[in-house]
Amino acid sequence: MEKTELLELQKTACKVRLWTIEGVFNAKSGHPGGSLSAADIMTYLYFREMKIDPKDPKDPDRDRFVLSKGHCAPALYAALALRGYFSTEEIKVLRHIGAMLQGHPDMKGTPGVDMSSGSLGQGISAACGMALAGKLDGKDYRVYSMLGDGECEEGQVWEAAMFASHYKLDNLCAVVDYNGLQIDGTVKDVAGLENLKGKFEAFGFEVTEIDGNDFEQIEAAFEKAKTVKGKPFAIIAKTVKGKGVSYMENAVGWHGKAPNADEYKIAMDELNAQLNAMEA
């Protein structure tokens, strides 16, 4: 991609992070760590990759995105709002009573959310169903689903993986946001996920491993995904949990906790400094 395009994506990702912190801070709860790790990939999907129209969020021919790791809704909401699906004002009342934006994605109430999710392991199955429907109808839309690394401990993920390769869902692209941390500690210590690439390959996927916070690698992976025929594609994206906020980076404690007022200020200052540097 052009340098200017890269810079634009980086700036947008920074704004996604700012609105993620804004949402979680105002909600006094939520999941900043995994939202920040996933922000670059979500930005790439919503601002460069997917064929979508915020004015026609139910277009039957649109590409779909299922956030299987539904707790990272703050980043999804930020991407959707910045892309024009709804006002960023909604983010300021995230998780409040009567708010449109629920703690986990709600497809009934939120424009742009293609599937309700939040219970881990379930979104990838729904993504499989969407991809299968696309095949049945001869449509060329693609379906993207983002999983957490910890989420891959769910058996349903592997049921879905078997299904995806059995039905040759080459219009499905799974992205694992491999930030290495889950609630009880490092993924390595909690449940030993490795060899994850080998697992997906054994389940019939074409797999690529990338730095999921590097837009050029993200682009290469999604471009490659579109060339693979006859089997589903998985991107194992190594990311930094809490990316962009110094004290949240690689810190287990920031999985599901909101910053206090002081922490909020530090986070916003840091992210704004990053944005200003890019805009300078």
Binding site: P60, A126, C128, G129, M130, L132, G134, D137, Q156, H166
Partner: peptide, 24 residues
């Protein structure tokens, strides 16, 4: 129009949900 999901009921229900979002 028939899809055997194998012995995996959880995924079967999820896939059915996804199919329904696309009008099936």
């Amino acid at each position: 129009r028939f899809f055997d999901c194998g012995i995996s009921e959880a995924n079967m229900i999820g896939a059915a949900a996804g199919l329904a979002t696309a009008g099936k």
